[in-house]
């Protein structure tokens, strides 16, 4: 296909991606170098029944004029990146010098908003992903053994947690674990503790979010593995059986190696999706105990009456950096394969 025809076919798609994905990334990078205008104050004399007093107020008119003039704010260089709500170099340094043990240092760093969010995001990504793969595999193996007539309905119900809107899925579980909901109330009775709440303690909130993540994504792994199981070569399984391999050995030495590429595929998809974990935090109202990088950006954009564009942009750039680091092994592998083929 000549270049000209190729371009004729692909330009709408390419234009959409350049305009709304590539340029926004650049725009985020540029915005992150700026910071909001400082608050302009005016002295206002307010007189009441008890005499007059002067107050300092935000000068709204001057502020809006300033914003209209330079909407980006003022240039701040890398200042936003190093401030306390992002990489917080000064605070980390102070924590390093001021703490006696490594544990204490970690605790201090974990209290900084960016590191807290980063830690949760990484924990979520690297705990949920393997659990999804394992659970999905177990379900696929089990479903493969039940009678063929049940398979249709089983797959139908299995797909639900994944298909349903993430926010709604999280809300549905959230209402059930509410202290007055069916699971929350039952847990209180089982442990005989009327104060027990899955929302109050940080650890339990984390566990709840992980459980939600596994519940939401396991169907994906299940469906992929299940489709893979249908193509496992029966001859190999039979010859393994002739050689005296037990049921478990056949799974271990024939099925699992055969499904390995699928596991890599699921892991890649899950790493990408779990790294941007966001909706469950809103759905479970978990922001007090668990924030993710995506949530940080969202709350900056939602803050007060004017969004903190600079801060959100700096967090975005750091998040994009994380995505790139996460994808590097995949990209290197694809590049090698491509070179070998080419």
């Amino acid at each position: 296909m000549p270049h000209r025809t190729f371009l004729a076919f692909i330009w709408p798609s390419l234009l959409a991606m350049v305009l709304f994905i590539a340029i926004p990334i650049l725009s985020v990078g540029y915005q992150s170098l700026f910071v909001e205008h400082p608050q302009m104050m005016t002295e206002v004399e307010s007189c009441g029944p008890f005499g007059c007093k002067t107050e300092r107020r935000v000068d709204a008119a001057a502020m809006s004029e300033l914003r209209a003039e330079s909407p980006m704010g003022r240039y701040n260089g890398m200042g936003t990146y190093t401030n306390p709500s992002h990489l917080a170099f000064d605070e980390v340094g102070a924590a390093w010098r001021g703490s006696e043990s490594f544990g204490q240092f970690l605790r201090l760093v974990m209290n900084l908003p960016f590191y807290k969010a980063l830690f949760f995001t990484l924990a979520y990504t690297f705990i949920v992903t393997p659990l999804v793969i394992v659970l999905g595999f177990c379900i696929a193996i089990a479903v493969n053994t039940v009678s063929a007539r049940l398979k249709g309905p089983v797959i139908f119900f299995s797909l639900l947690p994944m298909i349903v809107t993430p926010l709604i899925g999280a809300l549905v579980l959230f209402w059930m674990i509410d202290a007055r909901g069916v699971i929350g109330a039952t847990l209180q009775q089982v442990f005989n503790d009327p104060q027990l709440s899955l929302k109050a303690s940080p650890t339990l909130t984390w566990v709840t979010l992980f459980v939600y993540g596994v519940w939401h994504s396991a169907p994906f792994a299940f469906v992929v593995f299940y489709a893979g199981l249908q193509t496992v070569p029966q001859d190999t399984l039979e010859s393994a059986m002739v050689d005296g391999a037990s049921r478990w050995e056949r799974i271990r030495f024939v099925t699992i190696p055969y499904l390995m590429p699928l596991a890599t595929f699921i892991a890649l998809m899950q790493l990408m999706d779990n790294f941007r974990v966001f909706e469950p935090i809103i759905g479970f109202s978990a922001e007090a105990n668990a924030t993710s990088l995506s949530y940080l950006i969202y709350s900056d954009l939602r803050s007060g009456d004017f969004p903190l564009f600079g801060s959100a942009a700096a967090s975005s750039i750091l998040t994009i950096g994380g995505v790139v680091i996460l994808l590097t092994p995949v990209l290197i592998r694809t590049w090698r394969e491509f070179k070998r083929k080419g």
Partner: peptide, 13 residues
């Protein structure tokens, strides 16, 4: 792989 909210922070302004 880009988190959608990072793109949104690029759109808003």
């Amino acid at each position: 792989a880009m988190p959608h909210v990072t793109l949104v922070s690029g759109y808003l302004l």
